[in-house]
Simulated scan of single mutants.
Amino acid sequence: MNTLTYQMYHGYHIGTDQTLSARQLHQLRICFEKPALPAGEVLAGRQGATIAHLENMGSVAVKHYVRGGLIRHVNHCAYVNWPCTRGEKEFRWLATVRQLGLAAPRPLVFASTGRFVGQCWLVTAAIPRPYPLTQISQQQDDRRQAIYGLLAKQIETLIRQRIWHRDLHPGNVLVDENGTPHIIDFDKARYLNNRRLLAVRYRKRWTRAIAKYGLLTELEDVMKRATTAT
Results as ranks from 00 to 15, higher is better:
Tyr65Ser: 01
Arg143Pro: 00
Leu37His: 10
Gln119His: 13
Asp17Trp: 00
Gly118Cys: 03
Gln135Ile: 06
Gly87Trp: 04
Gln47Ala: 10
Val173Ile: 14
Ala52Ile: 10
Ile51Tyr: 15
Val173Pro: 08
Ala49Pro: 12
Glu220His: 09
Ile30Gln: 12
Tyr12Asp: 01
Thr157Trp: 09
Ile51Val: 14
Asp185Tyr: 03
Gln18Leu: 07
Arg166Thr: 09
Arg115Met: 02
Ala111Glu: 11
Ala229Cys: 13
Asp221Pro: 01
Ala44Tyr: 06
Thr16Pro: 06
Ala49Tyr: 04
Leu133Trp: 01
Leu37Arg: 12
Arg208Trp: 06
Val109Asp: 09
Gly68Trp: 05
Leu192Gly: 04
Asn81His: 12
Tyr148Thr: 07
Lys34Pro: 00
Pro128Trp: 01
Ile127Ser: 04
Leu37Asn: 13
Lys63Pro: 09
Ile71Tyr: 03
Val97Gly: 10
Asp187Met: 01
Arg162Cys: 12
Leu133Ala: 02
Leu133Met: 05
Gln18Gly: 07
Arg23His: 11
Cys31Gly: 14
Pro83Leu: 06
Arg46Gln: 12
Gln138Leu: 02
Phe91Ile: 12
Asp141Trp: 07
Leu100Glu: 03
Leu133Thr: 00
Ile163Asp: 08
Gln47Pro: 00
Ser137Ile: 09
Pro128Ala: 10
Leu133Ser: 02
Lys224Leu: 15
Ile210Asp: 03
Thr228Pro: 00
Thr124Cys: 07
Met223Ala: 09
Arg129Cys: 10
Arg72Cys: 11
Phe32Met: 06
Gly214Ala: 01
Val109Tyr: 02
Ser112Met: 13
Pro130Met: 02
Gln139Thr: 03
Asn194Pro: 05
Ala189His: 11
Ala211Ile: 12
Gly40Leu: 01
Trp164Ala: 13
Val117Ile: 15
Arg129Thr: 07
Leu133Ile: 01
Pro130Trp: 00
Val62Pro: 11
His76Phe: 14
Gln161His: 13
Val80Glu: 09
Ala44Met: 11
Lys204Trp: 03
Tyr131Ser: 08
Ile127Tyr: 00
Tyr6Glu: 09
Val175Ile: 10
Thr5Cys: 15
Val42Asn: 02
Gln140Val: 10
Phe110Cys: 14
Arg46Gly: 07
Val74His: 02
Ala52His: 11
Lys204Asn: 10
Thr217Met: 07
Thr113Arg: 05
His26Glu: 09
Ala146Leu: 10
Glu41Gly: 14
Ile14Tyr: 08
Ser137Arg: 09
Val60Tyr: 13
Arg129Ser: 15
Ile163Lys: 11
Ala36Val: 09
Phe186Ile: 02
His26Thr: 15
Arg203Asn: 13
Ile159Asn: 05
Met1Val: 05
